[in-house]
Each structure stands twice: as C-alpha cells, then as structure tokens.
C-alpha cells in the first residue's frame, strides 16, 4: 500500500513514515505543494496525508486538484487548525478524515486503515489475526467461525489494536480513542484496564490465544505473525 505524506515538518513526516512502515505501507514524503502536485499527477496512492499550511501554499489546493482529476486516493487532513470551519471546509472538499495535531501515531494508523478499507474494499472487509475475524461492516468478531459477544468499547479497542498490530499502542492513545474525549477532560487511564481485562477474558474463553501483551504499564501490543 502506498501512502503520500504531504507535510513540511520533516521530523513529523519521518516519524509517520517510520511508524507506518511496520504495517507494510510504502511511504513517500512531499514537503511542499509543488512536489505534492507532481507526485499525485504521476502516481496513485492508497492514502494521502495532507497538511494544510505548507510553505508554498494551502494544502487544500492539492485536495482540489485531486478531486478535479477524479482521483480516488483517500485523503486524511492533518492540521494544526481545528476549528469546525476548517474541518467542514476540508471534508466538503472531499477529504475522508480530519486529524488535528498533535495526534497519536496509532490513531493515525487506525484512521488510515479505515480510509483504505472504505476506499479499496468498499468498506466490506474484515481484519484477521490468527483465527480471529473482525468484520467492520457487521461490527462483529468471530473466532474460528464462532461469534464472540463483546461490547461496543471492547470492539473499538480490538479494532484499534488490530489496526496497529505488532506495535506498542500507548495507554494514552487508547484512552483518548475509547472515550472519544478529544477535549481531554480526564487524566485517568485506569479505566482501560477494566475493558482490556474483559476483552482478553472473552477472547481467550472463545479459544483465541492471547496475543495482546501489556508493555510495562506503558501500553499494549498485539503480536500476531
């Protein structure tokens, strides 16, 4: 899968590229509008990460050019601006998602996975890991064909870990993702232990080998081959 990162801050684009490389994404970096335009004219990408404020112009013009050419690349805007207007404007121009800086790389990973699922497979896709099958359309989880009854939060948690499999996902990122608490009202991450405990219990009761490892109170990692 090919990803284009249009971002002028090199430290950030390199971090994103490194993180995504683990998921077998091939990343290309465009630090300005001009390079980005050249790239999108020549190549097709599964997902484009687009910063709005670029040194030589507004990132939204890249988005416009894409839509004018009827390209089907998925686009996620990553911006320091987070007003509703910016968001609505970006989404109206045809972006698939909008992520405000600073964000967790794991959150970005999950969003990219979602966009690619929607774009490439028309949303009709399942994630698999060692006999576990998570159907994002039916929002169901099966283990060796057997339906597992899990709560909405547990489903979100499992999907998040699957989208970032084989990488450590910090408890902060999980907490923010689960609570949908973008405004950061809570500093307490303890509640995710309860969800994690229940999820792991249900999965192992259904006969799945526990691949979710706690990493020194720092976060969790789903290790699947």
């Amino acid at each position: 899968m090919k990803i284009l990162i249009i971002e002028d801050e090199q430290a950030l684009s390199k971090s994103i590229a490194t993180y995504l490389a683990a998921e077998n994404y091939t990343c290309e970096i465009a630090p300005d509008c001009k390079t980005a335009m050249n790239r999108i004219e020549t190549f097709e990408y599964d997902c484009i990460l687009l910063d709005i404020s670029l040194p030589d112009g507004n990132g939204l013009q890249v988005l416009k050019a894409l839509k004018d050419d009827h390209k089907t690349d998925g686009v996620i805007i990553i911006s320091a601006r987070d007003s509703i207007d910016d968001r609505i404007h970006g989404l109206q121009l045809g972006a698939d998602d909008y992520l405000t800086k600073p964000f967790h790389l794991s959150e970005l990973g999950a969003r990219i996975a979602a966009v690619i699922r929607r774009r490439r497979f028309a949303g009709n896709t399942a994630l698999e890991a060692d006999g576990l099958r998570l159907d994002t359309q039916a929002r169901s989880v099966r283990i060796n064909g057997q339906m597992v009854d899990i709560t909405r939060k547990e489903y979100d948690l499992l999907l998040y870990l699957l989208a970032n499999k084989n990488r450590v996902v910090s408890k902060h990122a999980i907490a923010e993702h689960l609570s949908g608490d973008g405004d950061g009202l809570f500093d307490n991450y303890d509640f995710i232990y309860a969800h994690m405990k229940n999820l792991k219990k249900k999965l192992s009761q259904a006969g799945w080998k526990d691949h979710i490892k706690a990493v020194y109170g720092m976060g969790y990692k789903m290790e699947v081959p």
């Binding site: 950030l12 800086k101 600073p102 964000f103 790389l105 990488r167 408890k171 109170g217």
Partner: peptide, 30 residues
Amino acid sequence: MRTPLAVFQGKLELLMQTTPLTEEQATLIT
C-alpha cells in the same frame, strides 16, 4: 506549539517501538 507537540508525541511513540526496551525506559517514556 501544535506541530512541535506532534513531533514530540510521534517520536515518543516510535521510542515505544524500540527493542530491547527495559522497564526503566518504559516508565520514563510513559
């Protein structure tokens, strides 16, 4: 402040992925 914060947060997450990672380092990163 948002872009440097994003860089900082991103690098921390990359640091979490490094191996080998000791418990001491993990606590610091957390």
